[in-house]
Every structure is written in C-alpha cells, then in structure tokens.
Design a protein around this nucleic acid. Structure first.
Length: 792
DNA sequence: ATTTACATCGTTTTT
DNA sequence: CGATGTAAAT
C-alpha cells in the first residue's frame, strides 16, 4: 500500500463515520484548520454540523484534508483499515493512523447564544463522544465570561463570587444614580441611560472617555456622570451587569498578557454559533481568543439576524471573510425541516432585503400544502380562528404540542389565550411573565442573594422591608449614606445600628434584621439551599405576610414550592454546588431555556423566542402593518424594515408542515381600536403559494349571496352552510358616540393631539376614520373607540 | 411608615 | 389597557 492509497483509505474510513451528512455538511465538518464561515440556512442541520465537527476535531483532527502521514501502516494494520472501510468498525489499535493532531476536549470552546442551545449541544456531544465531552467549554458568551472572571476576579477588583445583576436590578441602580445626582428623571430616562451605557460598553468606552467625547453635549455629559456613578455602585455591591461580564473579560485579557496567552493557547479550536447576532464586544473577545491559532469557525445565517436592538451587528458576519483573510465559506442550503412551499414563502420574503450574503433554501421534502391566509374581523376573532383550527387538528389526530402560536409582541397572546381557555385547549406561554420575574420569586432570590453577597444593596433594598418590618425608605437611605460615607459594608452598619445617632429610630429593627441575615449566612454554610430557602421564607415572616391578599396566596405559595423544586433539581444535577452557583445559574437563565416539548400543550411565544425551534403547525398571528413590521421599525426606515423582514423569515421557517398567516381588520392596541392593512410581508410571498382560509371563503360566498338576493337574482344554494355567529360578544357593548365625523373635520385625540379627518367610511355600526395628526402621522381609527373630541 | 387614590406613562424584540 | 409612580391622607 503506497501513501496515496493509504490516504484515500483513511478518508474513506473517516467519511464513513459521517455518512449521515450531506456533502456540504461533511465539508464543514472536515475543515478543521483556519477561519471558516458556515452560512447555515434555517433548518439546515446547523447543530448537527457543530456536534460532528467537534467530534471530528477530537477523534481525527485534520486527518481528512491532511496529506501528512505519521507512519505507514503495517500489513496487519492495513487489514484492519480495510475492515474499517468496509464495516465502519474501527479497531482501537489503528486509531492513531486516522489522526492528525486531534484536539483534547478541553481545548475546544463552543459558544452558543442561549443556554438551551448550549445544553442541547452538550447533550449531543455526550451522546456522540462520551463523558469526556464534559471538558468541552460549550456555553453561552456570558457563561464563558463568568467562568473566566470568577477565576481571575482579583485582577479586576472583584471577589470571585460577584453577583450578576439583571436588567431590573440595573434599572434600580440607574434610578438611584439619577436621583443622587439630582437630575430630572423625565429628561434622563433609566431605559435610555441603560441603552446608552450599554452602547458605550460595547465599544469599551469608559465613563471618562464618554465624557470627553461628548463634552459639548450637555445631556450626554450628565449621562457620563450617571455612567460613572453606576459603575461605582455596581463595584461597591460586588456586582456586574450583563454587559460588564463581557466587558471586564475583554479588559482582563487586554491588560494581562499572561492571562490572554493562557486562554489563547488553551482554546485551539473555537466555534461560535449564531454569529450574526454577536455584538462588537463579543466580536472583539472572539478575535482576541482566536488570534493565536486562528482556528475559528463561525456559524450563522445573516438572514436570521434579529438582535440589532441589542447591539448585534450583522456586519460581523458579513465582513468575516474580509476580517479573516483566506477564510473558507460553506453554504448549507438544504433544509430538512419544512415543505418547499414554506421555504419558497420564506425565500420570497427575504429576497426583498439588500446586502445579504445570498442563499436559497431548498428541500427534498416535497411541495406540501399551501399556506393558509386568514383575515379575521377583530383580534378576538383571530383568537377563535386559531382555537378552532387547533380543535380541528386534534379531531384529525394531531397532538396539542404539534401547534405553536407565534406573534410579534407579548401582548398579542392575551386574546388567543382567552380563546384557548374557553375551548379547554391546554397551552403554555413562553416569555412574558417569566417565572423568575414573579414578585415572590424575585423576593426569595433577593434573600438568597443577600445571604450569598451581603454587599448586594440592590437586593437588600428589595427585601429589607419585605415583609413590612418598619424600615422605610428614609431609614434605608440613611443607612446607605452612612455605609458609603464611611466605606463600611452595609451589614456592619446595620449590626451596630445603635452606634449611629442618625439611625436612632430604626436601630433596633435594623440590628434585628442584620442578626437574622447573619443567622441565615451561618445556616447556609451547613445546609442545603432548599432548606435555607424554607428557613428564610418562614422565619422572615414572608409566608405569613402573604395572608394579606388571600386571592393570590395559593398561587404564590405554589410558585415558591416550584422554586424549592428547581433548587432540589439543581442540587441533584450539580453535586456540591454552592448557593452562589445556583444564583449564577438562574441569573443567566431565561424562560426559553425551560421550554421542553414534553407536555402536550400548544405553545405560544414571540418570534424572537422561537428562533431555533420548530413546530409541525405554526400560526403566525397579527400579520399587519404596524404590528409586523412594527410601528417603530416602519418609522426607522429600511434598516428597521429589513430587520423585521429577517424576523418574518425566522417566523415562517419555524413551520414544518402547516403555516397559517392571519391578520385582523381591526384590533385593540394600547387601549384603542386601530385599523391596520395586511402586512407587506404577506404580499411578498408569491401568491400561488397562498390559499384563503375556508372561513374567509365561506364569508365571501355568503356576502355575495346576500348581494345577489338584494338585487333579486338568486344564487343556487351551495353545500356550504352560512357561518354561524361565534357564541361570544363580538364587540364591546356599543357605546355609540352621538358624534358623526366627515372628511375635513378637526378632531383631538388624547395622545396624538389634533388632527384632520382624511376619510370616513362606515364599517358595521361604526365608522372607520383616517386621521392626519399634527405630529405628522396618519392613523386609522374606529370612531366609537378612539375617544375623539370634535374640535371643529 | 404605610396605605390609598390618582395620574401618568409608555407601550418590541432579550442574553 | 395595564403597570408604575407620585401625592395626599391616615
């Protein structure tokens, strides 16, 4: 056997191991060295590629492409190789012949976007390469950064069990800062400050630099002060926000060459999933880590970039080839999920975007059914339409879990939810009210946080008077003031509260509370977390205080029980896990991470949350202008619309077999009834792929029969029955306004101000008005709902 | 300090 | 419309 024979045999054996993959997927799996861009369309087996690529790197390294041979096989080994090529069974003794510098699991860093994706990746890796997969760093950006930071916390002046603040916590701190600086919080809104600070962090701009860059801008100068104070407060609380996790990691690596060198050498192979959703800071982090080996594989789909509002820059993926000269590009365009009709619809929508890498999904699954397009009378009818179709599906033998309802914004779930409740359809809502966002859960977590990190003043503020123990805002403010002025830990001040005249009145209560926390801290060192939680909620009087509102008590107790269960589960899965580990786990967790398709119920969520998931039947509701695309994105212009279009592309490609696109003639939105035309995205789908819903067809038939009847001509009665009115009040009791409007009238609206009526047309027993408001926008409103005031 | 009533506000998407 | 926050009353 000569060398080329051996090499081709080697390739054959390796290829056999991955024979379930298509050619493009194999190419991505075998391309281990150097920068690699994998453009993976929706449903193209992206995770499969990631898993297999990692497996290949560990078991074969670059052996498929490499012409290097460590040693030629002996005659016995040749026989074993031939057997392996025939049967796929590889004798352990010849493994070394099939390798070219394979990596150890701990040399691999695989970054995903969500914890769910990370867990899925880990599970599949465990299944494919066994327990040593545990050494692979397969996690989210945030989790990886936390891991690096905890190990090196002293370099950046934090303790190794620093707290992670969520958006809610950050907001509280920001509010404090605005107040403390004596600024008007109308002018400096917490939300805007946070996003401004977040943008600064994205480009590693320090408060000082930010101030210098904006010295001529009065407002931004103040934001610089807020930014500075905010960072100080977080540091004093030994806490970081989400952005800090990445930001401090980048700074740590930038300022400490030996640490950078350690991680650069450690991670020989880096893989980044969902690369289109990375922001500048994440890009920076990746490029630092990958600088040494340049074995960087990024996987993504420029058409699925939907997190621009959070700082994701689609440019990261668009300019990857430029950034990494000589990068290999592989496109995965074969879709294994949907029917061709669904893919054509998605292709049709996305082709309207400019500046794409460009790709076209195809499938071997066949054409499939047409996409059903339905127009409901109202948002309420839309809910009943969905419910009706689910029930029909169930009658035909489908499961509830085959269905998903997707929408642009959380508030759209309400009416579908009501329709489901009335029809006894089991459902789950992902997002919206997150489990860990519930008050009682946040309170409980706050107690645990303070016990884990007594410097966490934000969480302390939450619970120091919850339940009421007579420690009001002014006392707490004084407490913080003293602790800041004397640079003493808050807990120390509390313990010896009676030493401070300022605290005289509340001193006893404060020291009692401090004693309770101290007792819990001691308890926590010896006992499991769930025991600690039980102690906390019972002995703090929290449970007792729930009696105040009997209505919700049961609910809240159940939630607390659920939390205890979650903790137990966590402790079972993670031996000798500390309280800190648990708190970290939940601080980086979101609702979607808890989603599993086990229980048989219809699932409802936003399109954003649905990314990466798939469902047999998808109802995409609210396909209307001003909803999807959203009003704000329309105002924003093409960049906004293109992002919405990508979102629509994501939504459509979630469906495996059936897709419904529904819209309403009018809907209640933000407290008033609005009229929106059907979404432009529906028009971007080739019309032959769409089919009107039976419900709509029947209505039309009935209407035309009525018209014919009025004209005296008769239409032969067809098979279809007239649509029965739904058994629910379809509109609110008519509060018909005495006012009538005609074109040219001047009206005043509560929020939009004055406007001129452009058109008025009768609709049912109401009038649909088109009004041009002085703020330059034109809105369509229903006269009876809009609460308009006639001016002239 | 706490409760209540009233007003105002902003309304997308979330690691 | 709902959540959130402020002002006034207890």
């Amino acid at each position: 056997m000569d060398k080329s024979e051996f090499l081709s045999l080697r390739r054959k054996i390796i290829e056999r191991e991955f024979d379930k993959l298509n050619d493009m997927q194999k190419k991505a799996v075998f391309s281990t060295e150097g920068p690699l861009l994998v453009l993976a369309g929706a449903g193209s087996g992206k995770t499969t590629v990631l898993v297999n690529r990692i497996a290949n790197i560990i078991s074969h390294g670059n052996a498929w492409y490499s012409d290097d041979v460590f040693r030629m096989p002996s005659p016995e080994e040749e026989e074993l190789l031939k057997i392996a090529a025939e049967t796929g069974e590889i004798d352990e003794s010849i493994r070394y012949l099939l390798e070219d510098y394979p990596a150890k699991p701990w040399q691999i860093l695989a970054i995903t976007f969500t914890n769910k994706a990370a867990n899925e990746l880990k599970d599949r890796l465990l299944g494919m390469i066994g327990p040593e997969a545990d050494d692979i760093w397969a996690m989210t950006f945030h989790a990886a950064c936390v891991r690096i930071l905890r190990r090196n916390a002293q370099y950046i002046g934090f303790s190794s069990n620093f707290t992670i603040y969520d958006t809610d916590d950050s907001k509280r701190v920001i509010k404090d800062c605005i107040k403390q600086l004596g600024l008007n919080d109308k002018f400096y809104q917490p939300k805007q400050c946070i996003s401004e600070i977040s943008r600064a962090k994205d480009y590693l701009i320090t408060p000082g630099e930010y101030a210098a860059q904006n010295s001529s801008d009065f407002i931004k100068k103040n934001i610089a002060d807020i930014y500075e104070l905010y960072q100080e407060k977080l540091r004093a609380s030994d806490a970081m926000d989400f952005d800090d996790l990445i930001c401090y990691t980048v700074q740590l690596l930038r300022d400490n060459p030996e640490i950078l060198e350690y991680y650069q050498s450690k991670f020989r192979y880096i893989l980044i999933d969902e690369y289109q959703d990375t922001n500048h800071l994440q890009y920076l982090l990746v490029s630092m880590l990958a600088a040494k080996y340049r074995n960087l594989c990024v996987v993504g789909d420029d058409d699925q970039s939907i997190y621009r509002f959070r700082g994701a820059t689609i440019e990261n993926i668009l300019s990857f080839e430029e950034e990494y000269g000589g990068a290999k590009v592989i496109r995965l365009e074969q879709n294994y999920r949907s029917t061709q009709n669904i893919l054509d619809a998605a292709n049709g929508i996305i082709s309207n975007n400019l500046g794409r890498k460009g790709k076209k999904l195809w499938t071997a699954n066949g054409e499939g059914e047409k996409i059903i397009r339905h127009q409901a009378e109202s948002d309420r009818d839309e809910g009943y339409f969905v419910a009706g179709r689910v029930l029909r599906g169930i009658r035909e033998g489908m499961n509830y879990s085959d269905f998903a309802v997707l929408y642009r914004m959380n508030s759209q779930s309400n009416l579908v939810e009501q329709a489901f409740v009335r029809n006894g359809i089991p459902y789950r809502i992902i997002g919206g009210h997150k489990f860990y966002d519930r008050k009682e859960i946040k309170d409980a977590i706050a107690y645990l946080s303070v016990i884990a990190n007594p410097n966490d003043t934000v969480r302390l503020a939450r619970i120091i008077n919850e339940p009421k123990r007579g420690i009001g805002d002014s006392t707490f403010d004084k407490l913080i003031r003293i602790s800041e002025d004397l640079s003493l830990p808050v807990m120390d001040v509390m313990r010896s509260a009676s030493d401070y005249p300022m605290l005289s009145r509340g001193a006893g209560k404060l020291s009692a509370f401090a004693a309770f926390i101290d007792e819990c801290i001691e308890f926590s060192e010896q006992n499991p977390i769930e025991e600690l939680l039980r102690k906390v909620v019972n002995e703090s009087g929290y449970i007792d205080s729930l009696d105040l509102d009997r209505e919700r008590k049961q609910d809240r107790l159940e939630n607390l029980d659920q939390l205890v269960n979650n903790i137990k589960l966590f402790e079972e899965n993670n031996e000798d896990a500390t309280l800190n580990d648990f708190l970290q786990e939940i601080s980086l967790m979101t609702d979607i991470d808890n989603y599993n398709s086990d229980s048989d119920s219809v699932v409802m969520m936003t399109v954003h949350s649905a990314k990466g998931l798939e469902f047999n039947t998808v109802f995409l509701i609210g396909m209307e202008e001003n909803i999807f695309p959203s009003e704000l994105s329309i105002q924003e212009g093409s960049a906004g619309i293109e992002e919405e279009r990508r979102l629509a592309y994501v939504a459509v490609t979630r469906a495996k077999k059936h897709l419904f696109l529904s819209s309403c003639k009018y809907r209640m939105l933000f407290g008033m009834t609005r009229v929106n035309p059907e979404s432009r995205f529906v028009a971007e789908i080739e019309q032959s792929l769409l089919e009107k819903s039976e419900e709509n067809k029947r209505e039309e038939e009935q209407r035309s029969r009525q018209r014919a009847y009025r004209r005296g001509t008769e239409i032969p009665r067809g098979g279809s029955k007239p649509k029965s009115r739904p058994d629910f009040p379809f509109k609110k009791p008519a509060q018909v306004s005495s006012e009538t409007y005609k074109v040219g009238d001047t009206v005043r609206h509560k929020t939009f101000g004055e406007g001129v009526v452009l058109s008025a047309s009768a609709m049912g027993n109401d009038t649909m008005l088109e009004v041009a408001f002085i703020n330059g926008t034109t809105k369509k409103l229903m006269a009876n709902f809009a609460r308009l005031e006639k001016v002239k």
